[in-house]
């Protein structure tokens, strides 16, 4: 079994905004692209890739839910899920070889694939289902927080964030030090009442989620309707002619 390091001051993690995530999967695809080419480990395989039941390894997935509510119209919520880099990571303590470990300096949870025996105990221990056994390599794969990007001095500085954060077109993913109360991510969590996922599991996840904002309610009457009434007989001049001509075909 593998020991956890003493709690680190630095706690690197993600803050994911469930209000602005549109479920486009850009983070899913860019994560797989980056991590398949990483020298840190084997590529993320796809079995039966073009067949009846393809099954591949992903370090980050988006689950979409439809929520029907008592008051207000139903809403769709997209929920991206990856490793939460827990402070009390059960996936580490369960590992029989020391392959699964948590870094003392920044709290990132990683797998040393060279000594992973593919027993799968860590995936069983993780209450979030955030680890996936690679079907071809038979080693455990998980989010590395793009440790080979965030400290990578060969990349331009703005690119030294996880691939999922870099690629998100909605700005719904944020990366930073959640151990520092004054960091941008910590302030965002405080401001938006960010929450930890399933805290009752006692794993002390580092990542935080920002809840969807309340939706606008429909007013009792439509304030814009009077402005939608036709106000002219129609356009005149060239535009009027064009409109009438196009209307005929």
């Amino acid at each position: 079994m593998t020991a956890l390091p003493p709690p680190s001051a630095k706690k690197l993690g993600l803050v994911i905004d469930l209000d602005t995530c549109v479920g486009c999967h850009a983070c899913v695809v860019s994560c797989k692209e980056w991590n398949s080419q990483s020298p840190l480990g084997a590529p993320l395989a796809d079995l039966d890739a073009y067949g009846a039941a393809p099954e591949g390894t992903f370090l980050n997935r988006v689950h979409s839910f439809e929520v029907t509510r008592e008051a207000g119209p139903p809403v769709v919520v997209h929920f991206p899920k990856s490793c939460l880099h827990c402070e009390d990571a059960p996936c580490v303590t369960v590992c029989p070889t020391g392959a699964s470990y948590k870094r003392a300096e920044d709290g990132i949870v990683l797998v040393n694939e060279d000594i992973c025996i593919g027993c799968g105990l860590c995936a069983w221990a993780c209450p979030y289902g955030a680890r996936e056994m690679d079907g071809a390599e038979r080693v455990m794969k998980k989010c590395t927080l793009c440790v080979d990007r965030i400290y990578n001095e060969t990349l331009p500085e703005p690119d030294r964030v996880p691939a999922c954060v870099k690629s998100c077109p909605a700005g719904a993913r944020h990366f930073g030090d959640l151990g520092d109360e004054d960091s941008a991510v910590s302030r965002l969590v405080a401001e938006r009442e960010g929450f930890a996922l399933m805290p009752d599991q006692g794993t002390k996840p580092v990542n935080r989620y920002l809840p969807p904002r309340p939706r606008d309610a429909l007013p009792e009457f439509d304030v814009l309707a009077p402005y939608l009434e036709p106000v002219t007989e129609g356009a005149g001049g060239f535009l009027g002619w064009l409109d009438r001509t196009l209307g005929k075909i």
Partner: peptide, 10 residues
Amino acid sequence: APGTVRHGGR
């Protein structure tokens, strides 16, 4: 098409 794909990587 191949059965198993291992895009990129080593």
